[in-house]
Design a binder for these strands. Structure first.
Lengths: 128, 128
DNA sequence: CAAACCTTGACACAATCGTGGTAAGGTTGG
DNA sequence: CCAACCTTACCACGATTGTGTCAAGGTTTG
C-alpha cells in the first residue's frame, strides 16, 4: 500500500491522529482515501504537515490563520476586498482643512442621524 | 477638535465604543490622540470602520482574520512562509515504488533546506 | 475469528475572541 | 464647579479554536 495510515502519520509528523482529522476538517490537507475510506498519507502530505508545524510555531500563528490565508489565496474577491481595506490608509485630514473639512464637520450631524438604527445608546453606560 | 470622539464615531459607524477600542487593540485602526490621550476619528478612520463592517459581514470572516491579513501584508517573511506552504501542493508522487519514496523524501527535505535562505523578497507592500 | 486497526460522532475542557458592563480616575466646557 | 465626556483596567459570558478521550461500528490481517 502506498501511504501511511493516520496513526503512522501521527508518529512521523508529531501531530496527534485527532489533530490530523481536525486539520483536514479545517481544509488544510486532503489526504486521499482507500476505497473503504481509510486516509492514506503520502510523502507530500507528511511534508506538508511537518512544514505546517514549523509555520505555526515559528510565526506564532493559528491553524485558523492559515485556513484564512488559504481562503485568501483561492478567493480573488475576498483577497481584493481585504487588500482594498488594508490600503485604505489612515491619512490625516491635513489638507482638507481648506473647507472640505468644515463641510464635512457640518454634515457630521446629518450623518449621525442618517444611521438608520435608532441607536438607543445615548450614553455609553446604559444601565441594564 | 479635528475629528470625532469615540462616542460620536460609534454613532456614525455602528460599532460600539467598546468595539472601537477593541479593534484598535487588534491593530486594525490607529486613531490619533489629543495631547491628553483622547482618540480622534477623522473621515478616513470612519470610512475604514464602515468598510471593515461590510468586509466582515460580506465575507463572513473575523476580525482576527483581517488582523492576520494585515500581518501577512506587513511581514514579508511570514507571507513567504505561508505562500510556500500553500504552494506545497499535494502533488502525488505518482506511483512511488517502495524503495523510491524514501529517497524522494530525502530529496524533498534537501529541497526545502535549499529554499530556506531568508528569501530577500523585497517587494514592499506599502504597509509598515 | 479476533486483535488491532480505521471511521465518524460526541462529550469535555482550557484558551481565546467578540462583546457588554462597570469602576476609578482624568479632562472639558457651560 | 460640576455634569458629561474621555481613559484604562477589570469581570462576565457566549461562541469558537484546539485538543483529548471515548463509544459504536466497519476493515484488515495474523
Amino acid at each position: 500500500m502506498e501511504g501511511l495510515t493516520i496513526n503512522e502519520a501521527a508518529d512521523t509528523t508529531g501531530w496527534s491522529p485527532r489533530m490530523l482529522r481536525y486539520i483536514e476538517s479545517a481544509g488544510l490537507i486532503e489526504p486521499p482515501r482507500t476505497p473503504k475510506g481509510y486516509r492514506l498519507f503520502g510523502p507530500a502530505e507528511l511534508q506538508r504537515l511537518r512544514t505546517l508545524r514549523e509555520l505555526l510555531a515559528g510565526f506564532d500563528c493559528a491553524l485558523s490563520d492559515v485556513a484564512f490565508a488559504k481562503r485568501l489565496a483561492s478567493d480573488a474577491r475576498l483577497r481584493a476586498a481585504v487588500e482594498r481595506w488594508l490600503e485604505e490608509r489612515a491619512e490625516k485630514p491635513a489638507e482638507v482643512e481648506t473647507g472640505d473639512w468644515l463641510t464635512w464637520e457640518q454634515q457630521k450631524h446629518e450623518r449621525l442621524l442618517a444611521i438608520e438604527p435608532p441607536t438607543p445608546r445615548l450614553t455609553e453606560t446604559t444601565a441594564a
